[in-house]
């Protein structure tokens, strides 16, 4: 039995979507310029993008690069972050370096990396990897640092070796924080993906966006924005589901991704 209140709560994001689309529709009708199509016009252009084979291949390639970059970052960043969290020397070794590269926009490395590695998948994947790694390192570091010392003592008393303690105590205890980092990383991967393609302008979702802009196909521009936005919302929601099942024992701290970089 679903109460009307619970139903309203469940459908709130959907209502918000509809509300935002309505606001868009009204705004574009009020402004009434050719370069700002209405929401309905943009929605009508969505099937033509998703129906086009070339666009689909492009978007698919974008998503594949994102998935590879993100996976590599997860494999590399979580152990590094946890080690930094548990071993003081490792932390003071890496922290200043990370602080220096933190405010560098990773997608801005695109032109330089393209010089070295060409315009292919490798450059774009590398940029995504670089962009995603930092938040995951940072959150794993915080998570590893916050692990209760007494829990490790108990583990040692039970005869766990230091490597075992890392896998069987530190990793699960830090998991909620690590997953917060991964969620930020996921959003950031999408951002880096789109940006690098906007800068490299050779293929992918970001390229479709700017090609349409150059050719004054304004409804396609807005339709593509909707597709990327929907992808962001979908990936985030899917990740939340996964996280919910992985760390059921931990209270979800925030129901919205908090940090983006």
């Amino acid at each position: 039995m679903i109460t009307p209140r619970a139903l309203l709560q469940k459908s709130a994001p959907l209502l918000a979507c509809i509300g935002l689309l309505c606001a868009w529709q009204v705004a574009s009708l009020l402004l009434n310029t050719e370069s700002f199509p209405t929401a309905l016009e943009a929605i009508r252009a969505v099937p033509s993008i998703l129906g086009d084979k070339e666009s689909l291949v492009n978007i698919g390639a974008s998503i594949r690069r994102m998935a590879i970059g993100l996976s590599l970052a997860v494999v590399f960043a979580i152990p590094l972050g946890l080690l930094m969290g548990r071993i003081k020397g490792v932390a003071s070794f890496f922290n200043p370096l990370l602080m220096v590269i933190y405010p560098v926009p990773k997608a801005a490395l695109m032109p330089i990396i393209m010089l070295w590695l060409g315009v292919g998948d490798v450059s774009k994947t590398l940029v995504i990897f670089l962009g995603v790694s930092l938040p995951i390192i940072y959150h794993s570091f915080q998570g590893g640092k916050a692990v209760e010392e007494k829990m490790l003592w108990s583990g040692a008393a039970m005869g766990l070796s230091s490597a075992q303690r890392m896998f069987r105590i530190v990793l699960p205890a830090a998991l909620p924080e690590i997953l917060t980092g991964c969620r930020t990383g996921l959003v950031l991967a999408l951002i880096t993906m789109v940006t690098s393609e906007m800068i490299a302008r050779q293929s992918g979702a970001g390229n479709i966006l700017f090609n349409a802009l150059d050719m004054a196909q304004y409804d396609t521009v807005f339709a593509m924005i909707m597709i990327i936005g929907a992808l962001g919302i979908f990936l985030d929601a899917a990740f939340e589901k996964l996280r919910g099942s992985l760390v059921r024992w931990s209270k979800p701290q925030h129901d919205i991704p908090l940090s983006f970089s």
Binding site: A12, P13, L15, A16, C17, G19, L20, L31, S35, F36, V187, L190, I191, V194, T195, M198, G206, L209, F210, A212, L213, Y218, V221, F222, M224, I225, I228, G229, G232, I233, L235, D236, A237, D255, I256, P257
Partner: peptide, 26 residues
């Protein structure tokens, strides 16, 4: 809160840089 929360939930995970072409146009 009832209005802001769902709207933020929808808008927060959207890669804002994708909005840039739209902002340029508007």
């Amino acid at each position: 809160n009832a209005v802001v929360k769902p709207v933020v939930r929808v808008l927060a995970p959207i890669p804002k840089v994708a909005l840039y072409p739209a902002l340029l146009l508007i």
